[in-house]
Amino acid sequence: MADIKLNHANIDQAADDLERSSRDLHSAVDDCMTLVRNAQQDLQGDLKNAAADFHLQLSTLDGDMTRELNAAVAALREMHGLLRDADVRAGRTIAS
């Protein structure tokens, strides 16, 4: 029984996948912001102002999204660490 060890690799994999998805989403939003900024140069008046406002909103939401996804990744990593530590403690208890 002292050899009991649970596999929590799926939690680590989930964190890796979420981290990769976060980078991909940020890249897509960044590409969109570049397109809006470039289009803004050809616009005038209210349309130009609307494009500037949209760009600002995209930037703000991208920052919020990135922070929230990073927090989720950190929570998954912490969960993985806690479960790994619990396995070690349980192994010691069973061994004694």
Rank of each mutant, 00 (worst) to 15 (best):
E19I: 09
S21V: 07
S22T: 09
S22G: 13
D24E: 13
L25M: 09
L25H: 15
L25P: 02
L25Q: 06
H26S: 12
H26E: 08
H26N: 06
H26G: 02
S27N: 14
A28M: 09
A28K: 08
A28G: 10
A28V: 06
D30A: 07
D30C: 06
D31M: 01
D31K: 04
D31E: 10
C32M: 08
C32H: 10
T34M: 06
V36M: 04
N38M: 10
A39H: 01
A39L: 08
A39I: 01
Q40C: 05
Q41N: 14
Q41A: 15
D42L: 15
D42A: 15
D42S: 12
L43F: 05
Q44P: 08
Q44D: 14
G45R: 01
G45L: 01
N49F: 00
N49C: 01
N49E: 09
A50N: 06
A51M: 01
A52D: 02
A52L: 04
A52E: 06
D53S: 08
F54P: 00
H55I: 00
H55W: 05
L56C: 07
L56G: 00
Q57V: 07
S59D: 10
T60S: 13
L61N: 11
D62A: 13
D62S: 12
D62I: 03
G63I: 03
M65P: 00
M65A: 15
T66N: 14
E68L: 13
L69W: 10
L69E: 11
L69H: 08
N70P: 02
A71S: 11
A72E: 03
A72F: 08
V73W: 02
A74G: 05
A74N: 13
A74S: 12
A74R: 11
